[in-house]
Amino acid sequence: MKKKHYTLNKYLFIELLATIALIVLTLFFYFFHIGHRTPIKIGATYMTMNNEFYPILNEQIANKINNKNDLLLSRDPALNQRKQIEEIHSFIQKGVKAIIINPVNGKSSQLNKALKEAKEAGIKIIVVDSPIKNSKYIDCTIESDNYHAGQLDAKYLLSQRKHGKILLLEHKSAISGVERIKGFTDTIHKSKYAKNFKIVKRLNTYGQSETSLPLVTKTIKEGTSFNIIMSLNDRAAIGALAALDSTKYPHRVFVYSVDGSENMKKMFSINPNIKATVAQSPLKMGKVTTKVVYRLIENKKVPKKIIIPVDLINQKNLTQHNISGWQ
């Protein structure tokens, strides 16, 4: 009887050891596989990080990519087209699976040549915020409704004024900026008050406050008179506001812009010159971009173009928006 009981315990013990060994081996292979998964490399290059829109956009993308244990290589060409092209070549050499690009110059043939090389290397290409004129090598373009942003500013202007002298703050190599200004001017020209408005000057500010400040200051000192400013973005608008203050410009100026940045929203309460900014959302753009990137890497279909809606912010509806950050 004792021998039979001993034999039974022996088999139970062996079965228990086998079960434990199986569990240990399963866990070992699981964690070995997870720990040794080769991260997917994704490249991102923005025209400049000297604009809070792009760091916020990049942060959204980076968070989601990092959560998947993959690697985002972020680059800042600082508005230098040659440097951005070098960054693309570097991405190709590093073996990225996708490139997210916000082009310094959306009309550049040299940039298209670099993107062609990336495409031929099997890399997916996603354009964000500002489109590229030749979309032949682009898998998806994700942008705000830039033309409509300009329209919204113009319509709001027309609801307030029926005449005026307009100073335009542009970024001629950024198609997004060109579309915003065109949406604005087209709407003015098509209105019944078109003859009452005059564009007195166009300044190529590159969307930077440190560029718009001296250019607007020079324009004022040269004697150019204006009472309306339409800016392609908030950074250039803020530089213009600083120029108005520093020169003690004697006339009331209505300022319209695009972005809905935290700085601009906070300035509504302290600067009566600010009339409107059209809000775009780097938070939403980041989420959409990441989703598109992985669908493309998995060889799934995505739309050729994705347009993210915009809305106008003014003094009346300011409290409906997040004043302490981006939307």
Score class of each variant (00 low, 15 high):
M1K: 10
K3Q: 14
H5C: 01
T7F: 04
Y11C: 08
L12E: 13
I14Y: 09
I14E: 08
L25G: 14
T26M: 12
L27D: 12
F29Q: 11
Y30F: 09
H36W: 13
I40F: 07
K41P: 06
K41Y: 15
G43P: 11
M47T: 02
N51P: 01
E52L: 01
Y54G: 07
P55K: 12
P55V: 13
A62C: 12
I65R: 02
I65T: 03
N66R: 14
N67K: 15
L71T: 15
R75L: 11
N80K: 12
K83P: 08
Q84H: 09
E87H: 10
I92V: 15
G95M: 12
I99Y: 02
V104F: 04
N105V: 01
S108V: 11
S108A: 03
L115I: 03
A118I: 04
I123F: 05
K124W: 00
V127P: 06
I132R: 07
N134T: 13
S135W: 00
K136V: 08
K136L: 12
K136M: 12
I138W: 14
D145S: 07
D145C: 03
D153H: 03
A154F: 05
K165N: 15
K165M: 06
H171C: 08
K172T: 15
K172D: 15
I175F: 11
I181C: 07
G183H: 08
G183T: 13
T185D: 11
D186P: 01
T187V: 00
H189G: 15
S191N: 14
K192F: 04
A194K: 15
K195T: 13
V200H: 06
V200C: 07
V200A: 09
K201G: 01
L203I: 06
N204K: 10
T211M: 11
L213T: 09
K221R: 09
G223I: 07
F226I: 01
L232A: 06
A236R: 04
A237F: 05
A237V: 04
I238E: 10
I238Q: 05
I238T: 13
L241V: 05
V253P: 02
Y256R: 02
V258S: 04
M267R: 08
S269H: 14
N271T: 05
P272W: 05
K275T: 02
K275M: 09
K284N: 13
M285I: 14
R295A: 10
E298K: 12
I306W: 07
I308Y: 03
I308M: 12
V310L: 07
L312C: 09
N317M: 03
N317G: 09
H321A: 06
W326F: 03
